[in-house]
Amino acid sequence: MTSSHLDPDALLETACILAEAVPADELDSVRASLEYLYHADRAVRPNALREVSPHPLSMTDAETIVYQLAVEEILDDDHLRVEALRESFVGARLLTAQEEPPENTIVATIPYDDPALNPGMFEGLHGNLLALIRSADDDLVLMSPFLSERAYERLRPALHTATDNGASITLITRSLTYDEDNDYNREFARAVRNDERLAPYTTTYEYIDDETWTTFHAKIVIADGERAYLGTANLTHTGLGDNLELGVIFCDDTASRITALVESLRQSEFFHEVTASSGSFRR
């Protein structure tokens, strides 16, 4: 039998099953294995397909493929629709070639003591931010105008994971070498400085123009230049757990644009590397 035309729904369903069960570069070998079974006059059974296929199929995947082809009357012990089989595998190859667009995630800190707000409206900011930090393998940027030592305690395990992965950390804040009345940022920076698993891998900066007091208010976390948080939450315990905060974790090309902005800061006259000695900070 050589009928080549499949019902569009049948073609799509069969192609989807094949694409889920077989990697793109192994589709031809699995199709050839199926044709071999038929022409060798062997029973088209899951075990037989697993035996002859160069690609190691699980029993579940082999059963699903064989069952689907039989249901659509493409291939069984008694007949083979060659063109329909090949059409299905071409469809699978097209499906596997389609890259799924990365998904961005809206995250929020929702005050639990406000009954008017539903905590399930968005994904949690705190948990997703920790996951973003843990995912860094090469570079991690933490940019926040306000910090707190209590936030550092929340972030510390994730920061340890990032540096264990091999990531270097860029910490960008303000009020380290000036603004003596505000010690919160210095407490965070000191805690990082005193952490043996973080200090060797962390470089700290201030962004401030001493003449005009131009500074920044952006809150950003970037992992490997590929995933970035941009939102309202400072890296403080209230920002991560108490205040109403909203942001987005970008996994599309927006992340690279945010990364480019941060890299441009390194060329700014307002951007100052800060070191610590005996508990005090200097540029």
Rank of each mutant, 00 (worst) to 15 (best):
M1W: 11
S4H: 06
L6I: 07
D7M: 04
D9Q: 10
D9E: 14
A10P: 01
L12H: 12
I17A: 07
I17H: 05
V22A: 06
E26C: 13
L27V: 03
A32E: 14
S33W: 07
A40T: 10
R42S: 14
A43N: 14
P46D: 09
E51Q: 14
V52D: 14
V52P: 12
S53F: 10
S53Q: 03
S58I: 08
M59Q: 13
L69M: 13
E72L: 02
L75R: 10
D77E: 13
D77I: 01
R81L: 13
E83I: 11
F89C: 10
F89E: 09
F89H: 12
A92H: 06
R93Q: 14
R93D: 15
Q98M: 14
Y112C: 00
D114W: 01
D114H: 11
F122E: 07
G124S: 14
G124N: 12
A136E: 00
D139Q: 14
V141Y: 06
L142Y: 02
S144V: 07
L147P: 02
L147D: 01
S148Q: 00
R150M: 00
R156G: 02
D164G: 03
I169D: 11
I172W: 05
I172Q: 07
I172M: 07
T173Q: 03
T173R: 03
R174Y: 07
S175L: 09
L176W: 01
D181G: 04
P200I: 10
P200H: 00
T203C: 02
Y207R: 03
Y207G: 03
I208W: 05
D210W: 04
E211N: 10
W213T: 04
V221I: 15
V221Q: 01
V221K: 08
D224E: 00
L230I: 06
G231H: 05
N234M: 11
L235Y: 09
L240A: 06
D242N: 01
D242C: 00
F250D: 05
D253K: 14
L261N: 09
L261T: 04
E263C: 00
S264M: 08
F270S: 15
